Simulated assay, not measured.
Amino acid sequence: MNTAIARTLAAALAGALSLQAAAQERSYTYLEAGYVAQALQSPRDARFALDDIDARGGYLAGSLALGPQWYLVAGLYKGRDEVALRAAGVELAKFDLDAQQAVLGLGYRHALSERLDWTAELSWLDTRLAFEHKPLALRERSDGDDARLALGVRGDLAPNLEGWARLRYTDGDAYDGEFGGGVGLLLKFNRVWGVSAHAEAGAGNRQYSVGVRASF
């Protein structure tokens, strides 16, 4: 009888440890969607000034593991805002703004320990800003292509909580040699579902997002 009880307890303990290990597993294959807010500092000259952009909307992002070390990343971020063009502090016109940014990149991870990975990502960014003044039928669009290198770490803070931090450098059309950084958290409810939060900032650029993630 004692042997049977011992075996039962051992099996239950093994199952609990297995579930805990599963909760700690860091997946590089996932799909995520949620709310995003992006603030951009608008360029100014001596005569005219455009309000800083504070676009809010939604995003869809994901990652696909290609093996034990390599993975793909992709994302689409969209938001809307209303900005004013001013001269000497006087408002000349208001424009509806549609902001969109697409991201596609390749990532590499290296395990530093059982709980911590070092990551490196090289990405291409396509940024589009579309301004419209409906009463005057005015439309203006700005497109920019940029390259971004991001280096950081991703690890387990608790059995059901992940965190990451990274430094990045972006250069091209929309970003002019900008250094920045970001942090994030993922609270996992089970092996598949979780809630994530991201915060990233650079010179004149800030992005915050909260979403639901499904890991596979």
Rank of each mutant, 00 (worst) to 15 (best):
R86K: 15
D145L: 09
G89S: 12
P43H: 04
L112D: 12
L76Y: 15
W118S: 03
L92A: 08
L13S: 13
A147G: 13
G57Y: 00
A49C: 08
S142A: 13
T119L: 03
S215Y: 01
L97T: 12
L185W: 00
F179S: 01
A165W: 13
Q38G: 03
A55G: 03
G152D: 05
A12H: 12
R115P: 02
M1K: 04
A55I: 06
L106Q: 07
L129Q: 02
V153W: 14
L161H: 03
V212E: 08
L167G: 15
A23C: 10
A39R: 09
E91R: 02
S123M: 02
A214V: 13
R80I: 09
Y30D: 10
A99S: 13
Y77F: 12
A197K: 02
D117N: 06
G67Y: 00
A120S: 07
E140M: 08
R7K: 15
L60P: 15
L185D: 01
A21E: 15
L167P: 10
A14H: 10
G89K: 07
A147W: 09
L186G: 00
A93Q: 12
L40W: 04
D143L: 09
L187G: 08
L138E: 11
A111K: 05
R7C: 10
A6Q: 13
A147V: 12
G211R: 00
L97G: 12
V183W: 03
L136W: 11
T170P: 09
S196G: 03
A21D: 14
A49H: 11
R213A: 01
R86L: 13
A88F: 15
L122H: 02
A174D: 14
Y108C: 12
Q41F: 11
Q41S: 12
G172T: 03
V73F: 03
L157Y: 00
P68F: 07
K94E: 07
M1G: 05
T170F: 07
L125N: 07
Y169P: 10
N205K: 02
G79F: 01
A111M: 05
A23H: 15
Q100K: 12
G211Y: 00
W118V: 06
Q101N: 14
Q41K: 10
Q207K: 11
A39M: 06
L112Q: 08
G204R: 00
N2R: 11
L138D: 09
I53L: 13
Q38V: 11
G211N: 02
G181I: 13
A87S: 14
E82H: 11
R166P: 11
L50P: 04
L185A: 04
R109C: 09
P159R: 06
K188W: 07
A150T: 12
T127P: 15
V73Y: 02
V83F: 09
G155P: 05
R166H: 09
H110I: 04
R26W: 00
A46I: 07
Q69F: 12
T3P: 01
D171W: 00
V73T: 07
A21Y: 07
S123G: 02
A55M: 01
R148F: 09
V212C: 08
G75Q: 05
L138R: 07
G107E: 05
N2K: 10
L129G: 06
A61H: 00
R7Q: 15
D52W: 06
L72C: 06
W164K: 01
D143E: 12
